[in-house]
Design a protein around this nucleic acid. Structure first.
Lengths: 176, 176
DNA sequence: GTTTGCATGTAAACGGTTACATGATTGG
DNA sequence: CCAATCATGTAACCGTTTACATGCAAAC
């Protein structure tokens, strides 16, 4: 899903600034599936405005930079729905950690251990972030997505804990 | 992980042509985590050759196009190890399906049902592909990675089957 | 006094995909 | 006869990231 469509989706729930959209990406429990940087959000928002899919209202603020509050237009809703009705591409899960584990036998044992520990810590952090946000969720879709993220993290953690010894033992004995 | 590094990794297990590298990506049970197109593999291989990280041997074939068999050089092994010792970026899991489910309430009910069915079918197909390849795996790393893919798919399937009704029921009743 | 949060934006660089070009052989 | 497999490569395009630019206020 491109940033354009993601912005439309978020705006379909209510108006927001570019800054707030980014924050929603990062905090709302589905950061595992969706993310984007300011460098892609702001240009996307400008293009959507040009195309009439969103509208802007500028708010001057005292002691704060001006903010541009974006709202989705009827044309924007139509375009968003059309995007959701198009054929949906497959998932892509890029995991540099998993890639490294494929070559654990080339790595010093303590490097493997450290990588696994760090990965477990990360996953647990995300899990507890999800748990915190959980009660706030209103829509069935949100609960579904967040629940799925939770299920995936839990399955990964369970698997890693059960099988880490198999790769740690076989890792290269010493650093060169 | 960029295509460059992925190519080095595959060549660290033995020589291969660009075509074979792509096939390994697609078939070896970790296609969920790693993929690349010819358009990125061939240029990467050429650049690696220029840099002395891999070497090429050209094989003329009768009744088949010539093939270029690539091997990793000692410098290539060093560079690959160095890449594995660098800080490892976080996973990114892009799921257009999950994104669509976030907005299931905007979609006609049968669209949601079809998307879920298709996603389940895809996941099951990957699971059985993994099961087929399973017995061939030799290294502990490979078994770990493939096992992790399996664990993830199983967890997703279980979750979707248990919770699909919640979003199907709340989907938009009729198409407009 | 430094970091974090608020707030927007641009430009260059990067990495990758898609489509195109070529062409013979084998299997269904 | 058509599709798939083997086999390599280029070029245009696309979307995104990264770094840069700016700046004040509040919290620690």
């Amino acid at each position: 899903m491109d940033v354009r469509t993601i912005c439309l989706g978020i705006l379909s729930r209510g108006e927001a600034t570019g800054y707030e959209i980014k924050k929603l990406f990062d905090e709302d429990g589905y950061q595992h599936f969706i993310e984007a940087s300011f460098g892609s959000i702001y240009p996307a928002l400008n293009r959507l405005t040009e195309e009439g899919l969103v509208s802007v209202r500028e708010e001057a603020q005292e002691k704060r930079p001006d903010r541009k509050v974006y709202s989705i237009t009827p044309a924007g809703r139509t375009a968003f729905l059309a995007a959701l009705m198009k054929p949906i591409p497959e998932d892509r899960h890029r995991s540099p950690f998993v890639f490294a584990m494929l070559f654990s036998h080339l790595l010093p044992q303590d490097r493997v251990t450290r990588l696994i520990d760090a990965y477990i810590d990360q996953s647990e952090a995300k899990l507890s972030q999800i748990a915190e946000k959980r009660p706030e969720l209103k829509s069935a879709g949100e609960r579904f997505v967040v629940g799925m993220g939770q299920a995936i993290y839990e399955a990964m953690l369970k698997f890693i804990r059960a099988h880490r010894a198999e790769i740690e033992e076989r890792a290269a004995e010493a650093a060169e």
